[in-house]
Design a protein around this nucleic acid. Structure first.
Lengths: 125, 125
DNA sequence: CCGTATCCAGCGGGATACTG
DNA sequence: CAGTATCCCGCTGGATACGG
């Protein structure tokens, strides 16, 4: 386990670059689910996310592609086939999110009561 | 180091409760900075965050209080003095965010270029 | 000092229909 | 199948002024 003092030198300014992406409604969900498989198609990701609209998914995938967290591979077939997978950076990020996920799993029930239904900033899952 | 397979059983639905709070513009910043000291006053947090408005800070502090991640102690003095500190849950959360912070520190420069100035969803720091 | 009250602009995200 | 093109609503967070 990491020594707490390992973190003391870290400044929130480190988050300046990645925060806009992390804080998007579906980003963590997509990164996490993508990490379960070698690669996924657009429709598959939509199914896993449940309530996401095609526009929202396309928006996030574009941003994740642009920032290099995922790679998009388009096969020249009919009907079209496109596959997405995490890059090395994406996989590292997913790993780094693991402890937060574990914490969330342990305490989720405590925070569910505070949550308002239909809240826009986070998925209903 | 954690084995990657430790995370495979975790589902994004675990995030349902905490995500609305995590995804707020200033939440992580405040939790992280609060973790540096035993307790902090309203004005001190404002200074550390740099660009946050009193309303926004009050909003987030309220939410963090309601969800039990921080505790608010009001001393009956004139002029008023109020101190905030992380609860046990809050400290655990901060610890869980550590790996993400480390990842962010390593890769921040890569993502800064993608970031648009004045972006509303994340602080300018 | 520690907020609250009010107002409001901007953006993210949803719904829907449509295309290559 | 894998998106785009529009339109629009709701919410968040900033600015500002004020109160205990």
């Amino acid at each position: 386990m990491a020594d707490e003092s390992d973190y003391d030198h870290l400044c929130v300014c480190c988050l300046r670059g990645i925060m806009p992406t992390i804080a998007r409604k579906w980003t963590i969900c997509i990164v996490w689910e993508l990490g379960r498989r070698p690669s996924m198609r657009f429709k598959d990701i939509m199914k896993d996310c449940g309530e996401i609209s095609p526009k929202s998914l396309a928006d996030v995938l574009k941003e994740l592609s642009d920032t290099g967290l995922i790679e998009r591979i388009s096969y020249d077939e009919v009907p079209p086939r496109v596959e997405y997978h995490l890059t090395e950076h994406g996989r590292e990020l997913r790993e780094a999110l693991g402890p937060m996920m574990k914490w969330a799993k342990r305490h989720n029930h405590l925070y569910m009561s505070y949550r308002k239904p239909g809240f826009a900033r986070a998925p209903d899952l």
